[in-house]
């Protein structure tokens, strides 16, 4: 009887600890989000994505007029130009997100850990009873909110404009390609957080993570047969998901699994690096 009571007490204590850890984690996430709001990142990054998203359908809608005004083309070329499909335009929008969007996201996230460490704010925070997991995790969560929010806002704007100007695309395809592409950008943001923990220089973190992402997608592009399971293939899968011809193939599941594995590994490595360096300092 007493043993079970003690056992119960133990369990209660443990669960209480866990909830308080979750409570602290939520507070940290809230603080990170507030910081994103104060620096206006939560406002301007979605706006940039919306702008990128609208620009693609609008420019492909006006392309015949633009070419005609330029006037260097022989007669009949413009009339015979094939009209773009809605899905094509949305895939191009995703490519825009893949270049300019990736650049913006990496540059926004680059100082997330190293900035606080360089200014000394990190040591102030880490004195408090916060586990390194919630420290890294809260930053990562806030960045994911920013990433997914911006991507969804921009992509939905692109979808709306494409439907208006070029041709409608079923919403189902939009959702599936949005989810796949979001995972790809999640990988980018996670790598940026990892490099931001590893390197002192924010610019170094941004360009290392962009470099990794570029190498991933380059390798998957060169060796689609051998490396179709790698996370680099994810952006390609997103383009395929929006163009109605879904030929996901056998590797689709593996690409998701490998991307998730790299994300988990990078987060664990970031915590490990932070623990090692803070015990050294």
């Amino acid at each position: 009887m007493s043993v079970s009571a003690a056992h119960n007490g133990n369990v209660e204590k443990r669960s209480f600890n866990r909830t308080s850890e979750i409570g602290r984690f939520a507070a940290m996430v809230e603080k990170e989000l507030l910081e994103l709001l104060r620096s206006f990142k939560l406002l301007w990054v979605p706006l940039v994505f919306i702008l990128l998203g609208i620009m693609q359908p609008v420019s492909s809608y006006f392309m015949p007029i633009i070419l005609e005004q330029a006037g260097n083309l022989p007669e009949g070329v413009i009339a015979n130009m094939p009209k773009p499909q809605g899905a094509e335009v949305l895939a191009q929008t995703l490519q825009q997100f893949g270049t300019l969007g990736v650049l913006v996201l990496a540059l926004v996230c680059m100082g997330v850990v190293s900035g606080e460490r360089n200014s000394g704010a990190a040591s102030l925070i880490l004195v408090k009873p916060i586990s390194l997991y919630s420290y890294i995790g809260s930053k990562w969560t806030a960045m994911l909110v920013l990433t997914w929010g911006s991507l969804a806002a921009g992509y939905l704007a692109a979808w709306y404009y494409t439907g208006l100007l070029i041709g409608s695309v079923p919403f189902k395809d939009i959702v599936s390609s949005l989810l796949i592409y979001g995972l790809w950008l999640t990988l980018l943001v996670t790598l940026t957080v990892f490099f931001s923990t590893m390197l002192k220089s924010p610019a170094g973190a941004a360009f290392s993570s962009i470099g990794c992402i570029a190498v991933f997608s380059l390798l998957a592009g060169i060796f689609p047969k051998q490396l179709g399971w790698s996370p680099g293939a994810l952006s390609g899968f997103a383009y395929q998901a929006v163009s109605a011809s879904i030929m996901k193939g056998d590797y689709f599941g593996w690409a998701i699994v490998s991307a998730l594995a790299i994300i988990a590994g990078a987060l664990a490595a970031a915590v490990w690096l932070l623990r090692r360096s803070s015990s050294v300092e």
Binding site: F40, L43, W44, L47, V48, I50, L51, I54, M55, V58, Y61, F62, P64, I65, E68, I78, L165
Partner: peptide, 28 residues
């Protein structure tokens, strides 16, 4: 057909782009 897109229609398409750019500019 392409030439017959009149100015007001073009403006209504391009206007959101301009507004978002202006918002970004003002914040900056």
């Amino acid at each position: 057909i392409n030439n017959s897109i009149d100015l007001s229609q073009m403006l209504s398409i391009v206007l959101p782009l301009i507004i978002i750019q202006l918002i970004l500019m003002v914040i900056a």
